[in-house]
Amino acid sequence: MSRLIDVRPDEDGLPPELVVAVGDVIRVAANGGRIRSGSGVELLGVLSESVVGTDGSVLTPLGAPGAVLLRARSPGRAVVDVITGDPFRAPVTRSVTIRVET
């Protein structure tokens, strides 16, 4: 069973290493992210959180994106940079190693 793993760096901190399984999706509360090195992890996107309004339309707030989605695709090890804080003023970059197991 694949898992949706919710990571909130500003509230819970980041572990130096995150061990996940192939098929897991990792959702990081962050304004930006990138894969610095390694393999096994795919960056699905840096996304703006949106909601379905009461009129059925999708509404997106004004502000920087707030979610980074990663997917564990294959066994391996990757270093991922996670960027939080105001992207236009004082972004904070932290790194986490994600180890993907079978």
């Binding site: 500003d10 909601v51 509404l59 707030p61 004004l62 502000g63 920087a64 707030g66």
Partner: peptide, 17 residues
Amino acid sequence: GPGGYWSYLGTDIKLIP
């Protein structure tokens, strides 16, 4: 909570659950 700084625009806030 997490997610940075943002707001919906004007009267759109009336459409947010």
